[in-house]
Nucleic acid binder design. Structure first.
Length: 644
RNA sequence: GGCGGCGUAGCUCAGUCGGUCAGAGCACACGGCUCAUACCCGUGGAGUCGGCGGUUCGAGUCCGCCCGCCGCUACCA
């Protein structure tokens, strides 16, 4: 049986210390688009993504939350999978580095490299932060010898530890040679140059173990050591193929096309990983592509800074702003994430420009094109695809040229370029309608000519949907549906369906319905206002304040709450009514200090039982260094006076 | 510090070997159309192509220097 090489595309395995963000979404989306495109080309495709779960930090994050690490990683892996489903991302395999199928292979890599002599025992030394459990390179450590982590800044220790090293230094020349002989191997070009510079400065051996037995993949024969996470993580691309047990599967899949963010391109995917493969005598990856980041104010956006939207939330926003259904909004976001990103370079994220792009490209150009054309089909052709009048050579040629362009752009990973290609057709069709003015032809009694024009435009729209299917699998299916085609473009054969004239005359089209409703300023403002009110500003209305019943009270009695250091139980007079309060002021005031004092009390607070005592209100105090300083009137006032 | 890159219309960016290269999209202005999601089509812009100097018959396009910004420079999935 002949083995058919599979188009095998991967994303990095994501670090499960937080939820998926827009950066990991970009990589995964790009892989999804490539996978779908190649499937449509008729290739067998295997799309792998997953999660990295062996880092010490993961273990510590779980401990902080007080749950077992295994449960923690289960939950996060599920969260990633959930996010990908929502974003219409269809992977074929999801690998988790805690799975036995991966652990075994990592250990096998280790054993073989050890046998070969490419892994040897040595001493690892460096500045170590006990709190962060992390080593830092000398170049990262300042004169002060404090932890470079801005949130830590504790003194570092110079630590030596016996570890295993990978003889990376031996592979520099082979890597350079390979890069030279395979000019398309690393993309984009300018990043390839960084790799060359990096290797030329001389590679140092890489430590591949850590003395930490609590979380990670054990080093064979060394129970107190685990494999360094990078060595572990990279191998996922091979362990998912079934190597070394299922050689047949491995041979069909490997080598892979790797996609990743630029931060892990040079050192890991373009250097360390190929060298590891060379050590085992395995083929290096087929292609390696490092894309840029979404930035905010020129800086890498991160979830912790909270400045980039969560991908699912962004889809919800798009749906709210535009009124599009959620699945269409998801596809719109997929389009925007690719179209607005100069692939390979960093791009500045802006909701504003996303909205503009949505309106101009999706609503005005493509969506409206479909809508206006279908409307005319109903007016001038009774809702059926009319007959073409004569072969429209110019538009058909443009289609063929675009198909070539898409292939070229896809090969170079310039997915935004693919979309630009497709919009050549969208623009041409809008212009074509204007030039031919079928509405005028119809009025002039030239119904057949008008219908011929409509056929051309419908056919052009059909092609655009076909070409856009990898990017917008759901929305394009809707376009075909409206054209009366009973099939999904994403399941179609690219080559067969790219031929001009496949649309069958006589097909009943649907009533036009705007696929991408325009985003209006009003809708955006309304959404923003709601959000502002709800979360951001912390502003309240005067009405909110008036709900508070704040009065002057006088303390009648006070006693400590037993077995507490901070609490006093107070009996107060709020003007003809006595109340009991529990107040956290015992560190500052003794009972005799407060008896007879006039204080400020919030009286209509829901009662709460504190240490077995019901507190019917809350006294107001200033907080100074964690201690309470009572508020009291400037001069004696009648008890029960209202504060406003 | 070393290596690499960038600085072109209000914004985001194209400009391969030096000679219609001064461009595209968006935004803006005006005009047209009216089938359409106030949409589409057309037209327009006194941009010193970061600055200075050089090579050349001719330079965003090559060389030198300067200014500004950025990336990489080994263990942060």
């Amino acid at each position: 049986m002949e083995r058919e090489k599979v188009y095998y595309v991967t994303t990095p395995i994501y670090y499960v210390n937080s939820s998926p963000h827009i950066g990991s979404t970009l990589t995964t989306l790009a892989a999804d688009i490539l996978a779908r495109y190649q499937k449509m080309q008729g290739l067998r495709v295997w799309f792998l993504t997953g999660t990295d779960e062996n880092a010490i930090k993961v273990h510590r994050a779980a401990q902080e939350r007080g749950i077992p690490t295994s449960q923690f990683v289960d939950e996060l892996a599920e969260e990633f999978q959930q996010a990908w489903r929502v974003m219409h991302i269809e992977y074929d395999d999801f690998i988790r580095t805690t799975e036995p199928r991966h652990v075994r292979v990592v250990q096998e890599f280790f054993r073989r490299m050890l046998e070969k002599g490419d892994i040897y025992k040595g001493v690892y030394e460096g500045w170590y932060c006990v709190s962060d459990e992390t080593f830092f390179a000398p170049s990262d450590v300042g004169e002060d010898k404090l932890c470079p982590n801005a949130e830590c800044r504790r003194p570092l220790q110079w630590v030596q530890e016996e570890d295993y090293f990978f003889r990376l230094s031996a592979y520099g020349n082979r890597l350079l040679q390979y890069i030279e002989q395979n000019p398309d191997w690393l993309e984009p070009e300018f990043r390839k140059n960084e790799v060359i510079a990096f290797i030329k400065q001389g590679l140092r051996d890489q430590s591949v173990t850590r003395a930490n037995p609590c979380w990670g993949i054990p080093v064979p024969g060394e129970p107190d050591k685990v494999i360094y996470v990078w060595f572990d993580a990279l191998i996922n691309y091979v362990s998912a193929t079934g190597w070394p047990d299922d050689i047949e599967c491995y041979q069909q899949l490997w080598p892979a096309v790797h996609l990743m963010g630029k931060e892990i391109f040079v050192r890991f995917h373009a250097t360390l990983w190929p060298a590891m493969l060379m050590s085992l005598g395995l083929p290096v990856p087929e292609r390696v592509f490092g894309h840029g980041w979404w930035t905010i104010g020129g800086e890498k956006g991160s979830k912790s800074k909270g400045n980039l939207p969560h991908p699912v939330q962004l889809a919800k926003d798009i749906a709210t702003w535009s009124g599009a259904e959620f699945d269409i909004a998801v596809d719109a976001e997929r389009y925007l994430l690719i179209r607005e990103m100069q692939f390979g370079l960093d791009s500045e994220f802006s909701e504003e420009s996303f909205r503009k792009r949505y309106n101009s490209d999706l609503a005005n150009d493509l969506g409206n094109l479909l809508n206006r054309t279908l409307n005319m089909v109903w007016r001038y052709a009774e809702g059926r695809v009319p007959r073409p009048l004569q072969a429209n050579a110019e538009v058909a040629e443009l289609a063929a040229d675009i198909v070539r362009g898409i292939a070229e752009e896809t090969y170079r990973f310039r997915l935004n370029g693919v979309l630009e290609q497709i919009w050549r057709m969208v623009s041409r069709l809008n212009k074509y309608l204007d030039e031919q003015a079928p509405w005028s032809l119809y009025r002039a009694g030239e119904t057949e000519r008008a219908q011929g024009v409509l056929y051309d435009v419908l056919e052009g729209v059909r092609l655009c949907a076909l070409w856009l299917a990898p990017t917008m699998p759901v929305a394009t299916a809707r376009i075909w549906q409206q054209l009366g085609i009973d099939a999904m473009p994403v399941k179609a054969s690219w080559q067969a369906e790219s031929a001009w004239g496949r649309l069958q005359p006589g097909t009943s089209v649907q009533q036009p319905q705007p696929l991408f409703p325009r985003i209006t300023e009003e809708a955006v403002m309304a959404t923003a206002e709601r959000e502002t009110d709800m979360e951001q500003n912390n502003l309240i209305t005067i009405g909110d304040f008036q709900k508070l019943d704040i009065r002057i009270a006088e303390v009648k009695m006070a006693e400590p709450v037993p077995n507490t250091s901070k609490l006093l139980k107070l009996t107060i007079d709020i003007g003809g009514e006595e109340r009991t309060l529990v107040a956290g002021i015992a560190e500052t005031y003794s009972p005799q200090d407060v008896v007879g004092t006039q204080i400020v009390v919030l009286t209509n607070l829901q009662p709460a039982t504190i240490r077995g005592v019901q507190s019917q209100g809350m006294l107001l105090a200033a907080e100074v260094d964690g201690k309470a300083i009572l508020l009291t009137p400037d001069k004696p006032v009648p008890v029960g006076s209202k504060v406003r």
